[in-house]
Structures are given as structure tokens and as C-alpha cells.
Design a protein around this nucleic acid. Sequence first.
DNA 1: TTGACATATCGAAAAATCCCGATATAATAG
DNA 2: CTATTATATCGGGATTTTTCGATATGTCAA
Lengths: 98, 98
Amino acid sequence: MDIITVLKALSNDKRLKILQWLKEPKKNFKSTHCDIEKDGVCVGLIEDKIGLSQSTVSQYLMLLQQAGLITTSRKGQWTFCRRNEKTIKELIKTLEKL
Amino acid sequence: MDIITVLKALSNDKRLKILQWLKEPKKNFKSTHCDIEKDGVCVGLIEDKIGLSQSTVSQYLMLLQQAGLITTSRKGQWTFCRRNEKTIKELIKTLEKL
DNA sequence: TTGACATATCGAAAAATCCCGATATAATAG
DNA sequence: CTATTATATCGGGATTTTTCGATATGTCAA
């Protein structure tokens, strides 16, 4: 985990929002075509909710992924996202020692 | 505490370094003219150590202060800095709930 | 009050971030 | 194979961040 990369990724209210939403995917997203609990949240659902362009969301998710804050998995035509609690815990541990 | 302001302030390795140094002022700074333990660390000591211009350091400290991460107090010609543990704890709490 | 030291503020160049629309790619339905 | 849907990537304009040198301000000592 690169602490600066992680902190930068979090330093944006839209990206922070995404991470918050992904904490409780079922509560925050509704899908007709997939099981959010099981699969995760697909990119399109985030796009619909956040009020940013498709390309921006795609780039933000890539950023969050590179920081290790989310993981993504492609299933057919969809890319599913979940939080990566490991990095979030690591971040908190690092900040506690800071 | 504005979480985005705090995260932005932390998202820079020099500023993070300053905050780390201020965790153990006595270990990280030597002063001839003041009692670090009692007064805090004066701006000049940070300037000497960090390898940035005086103006940049002054601005970074202002930024950290505005984020609530440090407090400063003027004593005579010196400005002394200390960590503000309150905000750091608040940040950690917020991230734990995130 | 004048000089020396400590710090703050100003103005700006360079780099990074934010965010978009257009376009590319990948997968599926028909 | 082709159109449609989902996502990724490219190129770029606008804004913010990074960092500096120059200058201003504030304080003390002589």
C-alpha cells in the first residue's frame, strides 16, 4: 500500500462517496440483472447514481483500484466492483501509527 | 473537520513527513534557543530539515493548520507548531465508519 | 531607530487533477 | 454478422496544486 496514492484517491468527494456506497451495496444500489450481494456493483449503477460522465467514473474507478481501495472483476459485459477492506484497514493502521 | 480538506492536506509526502516529525518533536528536532518539549517546534527547524523553500514550508504549515492537523502559537519572533491529535483521531474515527 | 532574524504573503511558472466528449473495445442478443 | 449495451481509453480545456523567488511584516537587540 502506498499511503500517498491511497490518500490522494480518497481526497475527492465523489470517489469517497463511491467507497461509502460500496460499503452497503444492497442498500445503495438496485439492479435488475445481477445479484449485488453476490457479484458486487457494476460500473453502470455507479454512473447512474453519481452524476458524472461515464468516462470520468471509469477513470475514478481505475484510480481507486490502483490505490487498492476497490477490486474489480469482469463478468461477461459487466465489470463488478467491491471495496477492498484490506487496504482500508491498512490505511487506518498506518494513520494510527502516524 | 472537513474530511476532504484533511485528506488533501495529508496527500503530500512532505506534509505527511512534517506531521510524522511532530509526533516526536524532541527526537526529530534540535534547538538551541527554545524548549521543544514545552513550546513546540518552530517553523525554521522544519524548514532546515525538509529541503523546501521557506515560503513553501510556511504555506504548507498554513494548509495543515487550516485542515486542523496542527496548531501554531506565536511567541516573540517564533511561531511554534504542534500536532493536533484531536483532528487526527477524528479522521481515524471517520475512516473507520466509512 | 536600525539592522538582523523569523515568518508570512504575493505573483507566477510548471505540473497534476478534474472532468468532459469522442472514440475504441468487448460481449451479447438476435 | 450486426446492432446494442457496457466499459475503457484518448485528447484536451479548466482548475488546482506544487513550488519558487521576491517582497512585506513583525520582533528583538544594540
